[in-house]
Computed example of a mutant assay.
Amino acid sequence: MQFSRLGSSKLDVSRICLGSMTWGLQNNQHDADEQINYAISKGINFIDTAEMYAVPPSKDTYGKTEAIIGDWLSRHSEKREQLIIASKIAGPGLSWVRNGTPISGQSVIEAVDGSLTRLKTDYIDVYQLHWPNRTSPHFAKHQPGQINFSHVNAEQETADMLDILQGLNECIKAGKIRHWGLSDDTTWGINTYLKLATLHNLPKPVSIQNEFSLLHAKDWPYLIENCVHEDIAYLPWSPLAAGFLTGKYLDGARPEGSRWTITQRQGLFRDTQYSNEATKRYVNVAKQHGLTPAQLALAWCNQVDGVTSTIIGATTMSQLKENLTAFDTALSTQVLADISEVFKQYPAPF
């Protein structure tokens, strides 16, 4: 297993981060135990979760994933210090989470305490803001004209961000979290927090996790360049485009028990004509070079300059094992050239 430094922290994380969002809905405690134990046996030391999980989010599944991890930790306390556990506070919009209110310094403190209780641990290594209070160009809102940035009150947003940062600082001083990071945010979000941290002598973010894959690479090159030069770890989530890049959803297919057979809060926005066409092309490239489509997509993500650790998730052990093999795969110049040809034709398929 290869490791990378997590931004400006002193933590070394495995190049693979085990995602957990299906635990508590599609996967039960036994499944999660099996995945965690196998991942650790392969050298993975990085696990990502969130108070909002399992997904799709609901009042009934809120907090279940953290509780499942906490159950495992209660039976393997001797391994806690070997692991880097990351969790996230939900942003505004979920009525069953703090009545859907925006993130504040006080809600950070309250949410951290809730996560610590469910995780059955004294500290969280990296605590992340799941999405910002303002609307950000994530979840298919990145096409021109979908968001009006000019209508945002930047001064008020900045004041709210300072309040959040102060709440995070309180948690760090109390030893409840070691570091903090962002998720589903932008270059402006990163740099505003960095500016505030410098001005007020507060802790800087060490990481950001955003959606990133062959079907959704909008963060390259500008946001990732910013991360590299500001020492912010870049953590891609959904590197398989919610499973689309495996090819299993091509032409409307919906395998029994798969994620896309479950109602999605944001809808199946990745399922477009162009995503379908691009995925068919990537599947063909994989076959030509003796790879599975998942291996091709994950190996490509891993080799992107600036990527620190890729968050993968699986509902079955066979999926997990296949995904892990991708990170031992070095893509040849010809494979990368073939991928590039497809990418040029479908740079933003959804």
Rank of each mutant, 00 (worst) to 15 (best):
I89C: 05
P293F: 01
W180L: 11
D328T: 09
T135V: 15
D125H: 08
Y53L: 03
S14I: 03
L11P: 00
P144H: 02
K64V: 07
L194S: 09
L240N: 02
Q146C: 15
K88A: 11
V13T: 07
N28C: 10
P221C: 02
L215W: 05
N201K: 15
Q35V: 13
R80V: 09
N169I: 01
K248F: 07
S207W: 01
R75M: 08
H229N: 14
I84T: 06
P144W: 02
C301F: 00
S332A: 11
D160Q: 12
V112W: 02
F244I: 13
E110K: 15
P57N: 08
H30P: 07
P347K: 02
G114P: 02
W23H: 14
V112H: 02
T325V: 11
W131L: 13
E225M: 14
R134W: 04
W96I: 02
R134M: 06
D48A: 05
A159P: 00
E341V: 11
N169P: 00
I109P: 04
Y222W: 14
I164H: 00
K248R: 15
E170L: 14
N28T: 07
N37R: 10
Q303E: 10
N27K: 08
D305I: 13
L320R: 04
G114C: 01
W131M: 12
A278T: 13
S150C: 06
Q29V: 10
T308L: 01
P132N: 08
D184H: 10
S8Q: 15
G145W: 02
I40V: 15
P255A: 02
T192E: 05
R98V: 11
P132Y: 03
H200W: 07
T315Y: 03
E66F: 04
Q295F: 03
P347G: 00
E256F: 12
H179F: 14
Q128M: 14
C17M: 06
K176Y: 13
G243Y: 00
N201Y: 15
I147S: 05
K321M: 11
C301M: 03
H138L: 09
K287P: 08
K173P: 06
L83D: 08
Y53T: 01
L240Q: 05
T246D: 00
D160A: 10
T263N: 13
N153E: 12
Q209R: 10
G43N: 11
E225G: 07
I177H: 00
L129Y: 05
L336I: 04
H30R: 10
M52R: 07
N28M: 12
P102F: 10
P56L: 04
Y127S: 03
L6E: 07
R80S: 06
P203W: 03
C227I: 09
W237F: 15
N201V: 11
P236I: 08
L215Y: 04
L6Y: 07
S107R: 15
R5H: 08
S77D: 13
